[in-house]
């Protein structure tokens, strides 16, 4: 790429981004183009740097000073933290309250199961009672061989 064309194109034309990228790369790497532009170090020596201003008085009025804050408002994030803590505490209190409430006692009952033949593994529920009341057996076979779950519930009157 010719350097003069690059300079002209870079300054004069509205270019698409990819072409600007190519021109930038050319300018960054071409020793001739770099030679025509002043480098950063030389430019810094022409201007004022913060290091030159160490003895300048502060821009802020003396009342504001350079003190770090003495009295400060609660930072914004702490409010969320306090809110979250409060919510967790309330939730814990509710859980504790429910746990303190005595659960309904499990009804005690009597179940008579008669197994037929040990090899055949057949059983029958002859009678089921919860307390003094008759109960209804419910059988559930989860699909695992040799497993049957039986539970009982009170029959409604």
């Amino acid at each position: 790429m010719a350097c003069k064309w690059v300079c002209f194109a870079f300054r004069a034309l509205p270019l698409p981004a990819w072409r600007t990228f190519l021109l930038d790369r050319h300018i960054d790497h071409c020793p001739r183009c770099r030679g025509e532009a002043l480098d950063d170090e030389a430019i810094r020596s022409l201007g004022v740097t913060p290091a030159d201003l160490q003895n300048e008085p502060s821009l802020l009025p003396p009342a504001a000073g350079r003190r770090l804050p003495r009295r400060r408002a609660i930072p914004f994030d702490w409010r969320y933290a306090f809110g979250a803590l409060l919510a967790v505490t309330l939730l814990g209190a509710l859980v504790a309250l429910f746990r303190l409430t005595p659960p309904e006692p499990i009804a005690q009952g009597t179940v008579y199961v008669t197994e037929g033949d040990a090899h055949v593994r057949v059983f029958a529920v002859i009678e089921a009672r919860i307390g003094d009341e008759p109960a209804r057996p419910i059988l559930f076979k989860p699909g695992q061989p040799g497993m049957t779950i039986v539970w009982f519930e009170k029959t409604k009157n």
């Binding site: 201007g47 913060p50 201003l53 300048e56 504001a64 770090l68 804050p69 009295r71």
Partner: peptide, 19 residues
């Protein structure tokens, strides 16, 4: 709205701004 905090915040950058 804490002015002291603002003073503390800009104190490290004011020389750059002035330059």
């Amino acid at each position: 709205g804490d002015r002291d905090a603002f003073a503390g915040l800009v104190s490290s950058h004011e020389k750059k701004l002035l330059a």
